[in-house]
Design a protein around this nucleic acid. Structure first.
Length: 290
DNA sequence: CGGTTTTGACCAGCGC
DNA sequence: GCGCTGGTCAAAACCG
């Protein structure tokens, strides 16, 4: 986490990912938003408008590279194994951490993180979580809390910590994909009109689960092909900054650590069209690869 | 009483 | 090899 310095971009990124992250950074910048990577690391602000944040050159020998090569020992390997996260990877992270085959490092689920301006650390997101740990974080006065989804068949984890830079900002990192729907907010409710931050977060939390393409289409009125340049601040803001009805401010939706390349995309049978949250948020036309 | 939180201990990965 | 750090476990405490 705080260990992620300039030289150790924590993603198991490839060219496609680096490209996407830069675009996302630009998109976020255009909306006056901060960007965090999938491990909650604040990315440096973009100084000149229009200039993309360029992450340090990612290692190119991925995704075969074991997850442990990342900065915090956990970060975002986004390997092909991760990508089939639709299944309740029964022996996923937890089992992996316990009984790792010698020579094999733990595999990590796709991650995405976002920052929320809130006085409350653990924000309601529609799922039920059980806290299983808390650790002091290096270079941060605030501890990091670890949560697991209470659904026994669901392996999704969540980390919550406060930004050391801005204590009013909570950094939430989701890892994995829910194999079930929200407890308190059925999908129908989450997609209904009049989002609260809760619905928005539930939607985000559910996004990697399966049908976030459809979900997100409910979130953003403009067609996904609209280029950024043609996107008004208001409309693009609605894309990232959802209506707020509570005292928390959902300020940032950040990059998705999943499926960094086409080779690690989930099978089409699982996710027919999307390649991760980022693809829903960043119109294809905006991407350099398109 | 069952579920959740707290908290110290333990383990693995990484850098030196 | 050793120390540091992140992540997880698991027993005890807590709560409704």
């Amino acid at each position: 986490m705080a260990m992620a310095g300039a030289g150790d971009w924590p993603f198991a990124a490839d060219e496609a990912y680096a490209d996407s992250s830069a675009i996302f950074a630009e998109l976020a910048w255009a909306n006056g938003l901060a960007v965090v990577d999938t491990v909650g690391e604040l990315l440096p602000p973009l100084d000149p408008p229009g200039e993309l944040a360029t992450p340090p050159p990612p290692p190119l020998d991925l995704p075969e590279t074991p997850a442990g090569s990342s900065a915090d020992g956990a970060a975002s390997s986004c390997s092909t194994d991760d990508a089939d996260g639709g299944k309740p990877a029964a022996a996923s992270t937890e089992a992996a951490s316990k009984s790792l085959t010698p020579g094999k490092k733990r595999a990590r689920q796709p991650r995405f993180a976002f920052m929320t301006k809130s006085e409350i650390d653990h924000l309601e997101d529609g799922y039920r979580w059980r806290k299983y740990g808390q650790k002091a974080v290096k270079n941060s006065p605030f501890p990091r809390s670890y949560y697991r989804c209470t659904n026994s068949k669901c392996t999704v984890k969540k980390r919550v910590e406060r930004s050391s830079d801005d204590p009013s900002v909570v950094i939430t990192t989701y890892e994995g994909q829910h194999s079930h729907h929200t407890v308190t907010f059925p999908r129908a409710a989450a997609t209904a009109a009049g989002f609260s931050h809760i619905h928005a977060m539930a939607a985000l939390a559910a996004a990697p689960f399966s049908a976030h393409q459809q979900l997100y289409s409910n979130l953003q009125p403009p067609p996904p092909t609209m280029p950024l340049a043609a996107t008004t601040p208001a409309s693009s803001s609605s894309l990232l900054q959802l209506p707020l009805h509570c005292n928390h401010e959902l300020q940032v939706v950040a990059s998705c650590g999943g499926y960094p390349s086409s080779s690690s995309s989930p099978p089409a049978s699982v996710l027919p069209v999307d390649k991760g949250l980022l693809d829903d948020m960043v119109p294809r036309a905006m991407r350099h690869d398109g």
